[in-house]
Nucleic acid binder design. Structure first.
Lengths: 110, 110
DNA sequence: GCAATATGCTTCGCGTTACGAAGTATCGTC
DNA sequence: GACGATACTTCGTAACGCGAAGCATATTGC
């Protein structure tokens, strides 16, 4: 399990990327990301949903409630145009940042 | 400039790594990391020093005040044994985390 | 000689955010 | 009908990066 501080900068990015090109509900997003990370990432429900609410408030994603009989009620989220742009930006920022950190903390400062 | 949240998980690691095998004072650490990052990283003084105080309180680093005439007073920090271990751990955690995130947000989920 | 700039450190309050805890409710299965 | 998985909600807390303001000394340029 990674430290909360480490996750801070990438929660949104991870969730946004899970919605790229498809529609998913909250619980599904959590399970998917846990799976894609090979179990390394554990999502806390309180964190997961609060991030989703925050992103919807900001207009990055749009939720739609679906209630079918024989199924639990679920809120399916999809990226908005804005969300797609934010995803591109955040992915770029993450790549630049992680590359930079890896360079700086590398041992090659002889 | 990277977002504050992104930096959250790596401030300590960056500073620890700047003290690997040498002794430096606060201002110097800031400038060094800005330089090593090619100017991408900007250190806020309030952040920099508060991280240093925190790390000293935790016993990761040890500061020593030096006052020479003709020079400003400076506090030189060095890694403690514990700090060296933390650096190793944090570096490992960072590598694992950044690799994981890069995999998960990669577009190859066809 | 004196202003401007760089160096070097300190303290305080704020806003954001991941998390724990507790709760509600439905569905499958043994 | 007990138990676990599914699915979502709300609230309070602690940690941390940062802006702002301040203090003090050295160097540079006019």
């Amino acid at each position: 399990m990674f430290s909360a501080d480490l996750k801070r900068g990438s929660m949104e990015l991870l969730i946004l990327s899970s919605l790229e090109g498809c529609t998913r509900h909250g619980y599904e997003i959590g399970k998917l990301l846990e799976h894609r990370s090979g179990g390394q990432l554990e999502f806390r429900v309180s964190t997961l949903y609060s991030v989703l609410y925050r992103m919807e408030e900001r207009g990055w994603i749009k939720g739609r409630w679906v209630e079918k009989k024989g199924e639990r009620r679920r809120c399916y989220y999809k990226l908005t145009r804005k969300g797609e742009r934010i995803l591109v930006d955040q992915r770029k920022e993450w790549k630049a940042f992680s590359t930079m950190v890896n360079q700086v903390i590398g041992v090659s400062h002889a």
